[in-house]
Design a protein around this nucleic acid. Sequence first.
DNA 1: AACCTATTTGGCTAAATAGCCAAATAGCCA
DNA 2: TGGCTATTTGGCTATTTAGCCAAATAGGTT
Lengths: 110, 110
Amino acid sequence: MASRINTKHEAWAKVIKAMAHPSRLFIIEELHKGERCVGDLTEMIGADASTVSKHLSVLKNAGLVSDEKRANSIYYTLRCPCVMDFIGCVEDVLSANAKEHAHILKCCKK
Amino acid sequence: MASRINTKHEAWAKVIKAMAHPSRLFIIEELHKGERCVGDLTEMIGADASTVSKHLSVLKNAGLVSDEKRANSIYYTLRCPCVMDFIGCVEDVLSANAKEHAHILKCCKK
DNA sequence: AACCTATTTGGCTAAATAGCCAAATAGCCA
DNA sequence: TGGCTATTTGGCTATTTAGCCAAATAGGTT
């Protein structure tokens, strides 16, 4: 049978892949609070400015953020704040994992 | 300043990274409809069984799916169906991208 | 026990990604 | 213009990932 993976799944993956990095999730979380410029984010993340810039360009290419130049800085904005809603679900997954782990420990102790 | 990236962001990234692949998103979508065994998914995806098995183990390690052996097959289940809700938001991002792209084309034509 | 069927693991290669440094660029200000 | 600040790009290396094949494993069945 022909593969049922199609462009739709690839498009989804592109966006989700752009989110799949600790620094980029930090950026998303931070931008959810409000726009930030590259320098601020760089200082908060504590990595090389070029590294942060590249993370921002990954997010921008995926359409997750947009940028605007003002004064002598570039300000980034989260385009679809709904992406942060997803984190709640991710936390559900993590707490389910933690619960299961605790359960396994409990069983083994007996 | 010390980095503000912490374990939280790494844990989030782990889960999201596990989702960030077309085949794995297909699997998630399919499991959202109901449990499926490896053979069924393999046929639908049209890749090597070992490849699909590895995708499933990525999802399982992230805690996104669980498996249960029954008869002579292993059935996989989506543990937190909420992950599919997120796709709606991803679609929002994609349609915002499409809209912007159309807008740019329109501007250039003039 | 020997045999199936279903699934996983190991080994390999090709491709993608993250991060740093150094250099280029862009716009502001003297 | 020349210098300053902020940001991006290029180049490199180390690491991770995807996918295939072949081999191993796990249970059920005869």
